[in-house]
Simulated assay, not measured.
Amino acid sequence: MELRNDTRISVFLLLGLSKEPELQALILGLFFSMYLITVFGNLLLILAVISDSHLHTPMYFFLSNLSFTDICFTSTTIPKMLMNIKTKINVITYEGCISQIYFFLLFASLENFLLAVMAYDRFVAICYPLHYTVIMKPWLCGILVLVSWMISALNSLLQSLMVLWLSFCTKVEIPHFFCEINQVVQLACSDTFLNDITMYFAAGMLGGASLSGILYSYSKIVSTIREITSVQGKYKAFSTCASHLSVVSLFYCTVLGVYFSSAGTHSSNSSAIASVMYTVVTPMLNPFIYSLRNKDIKTALKRIIGITVT
């Protein structure tokens, strides 16, 4: 059967996190505050890396890219959610929904790849410290980020185009605060077999490959740290990757927690609430994790806000 676009709708209805009217003001204030903290926190981190020449290294280059991705990732969903709550019109256009799916997948995949690239950077720094500057040259760092962008863009483009070919008839209520691709595909009245296969294959291949790379890198890092004789040397080696390990744990634990919890409860509303963890909370906490555990970042931030550093 030939796939064709028989879409009979122009808008989707986003049900949001709660239907209770008395909770809308609380949700609006809470998410607006979290969004501002996310944007300004990550912008400060990017500014700190750009303004301090001591931070012009591969590790901080990847970190600034991660911060930029976090800003875009959150901005894909939260502003629309806040506007819907404010106007009390919980709709998103068909075109807007497809665009939201594309950019959400793009920045979610990009964050996934950047975490893997940063793990590789820490692997080289700890396991091959004498060859670090030779291996992690600027052109290689640029290629790693560029390839991450390209794969993420191709994946999101493919899945978004496949959603365009689906037919939507009458039921257009999405039990979420944004156009989550799985929820949208479930609303289609045409065959979604290819969409389901593509989604699971992409999640397994892209997510699985990145997570496997991270686990392999840290297995080698742990082995190298165990071979260090001095306690001070072990602490110094571990401290260079502690922040990244914290961010990786937060991101993957929340993502896996969302899908396991939603699969166990079969509740779309529970899935929407759990999704807040990796779509909002994780991007908000990332700059704090890196700044609180990193003396170089704290020094650069103090210079930016005008505190004299001795």
Score class of each variant (00 low, 15 high):
N269E: 15
S243H: 08
A116C: 02
M162S: 05
F201N: 12
V172W: 04
I151H: 03
M136R: 00
Y94Q: 13
I174A: 03
G233A: 07
T38A: 10
N182S: 06
S18R: 12
V163C: 02
K302D: 10
L43D: 04
E227S: 11
S219N: 11
F103L: 13
S223T: 06
T170R: 03
F32I: 06
I71P: 04
L245M: 14
A188S: 14
Y94W: 13
S33M: 13
L105M: 15
T77W: 03
S275L: 06
F123W: 15
F107R: 12
F251P: 00
F103R: 10
S64W: 00
R226D: 11
N65M: 08
N65E: 06
F40L: 13
T76F: 04
M34H: 10
W149I: 05
I9C: 05
L164A: 02
T240F: 08
H56D: 08
I126E: 05
G96M: 06
F238V: 05
S249F: 14
C97S: 15
E111T: 11
A209Y: 14
S270L: 13
A209I: 12
C141K: 00
F62D: 02
P129Y: 02
D6V: 02
L187Y: 09
Y128S: 13
M83V: 12
F73R: 02
R122N: 07
G257H: 02
N155P: 02
F177V: 02
K19S: 15
F288R: 08
H176F: 00
I126F: 07
S271N: 11
V309C: 12
F177Q: 03
S156K: 03
L256T: 13
S212C: 10
P283L: 07
I197F: 15
M199D: 13
F40G: 01
T57F: 04
S219V: 04
W139V: 03
F113K: 03
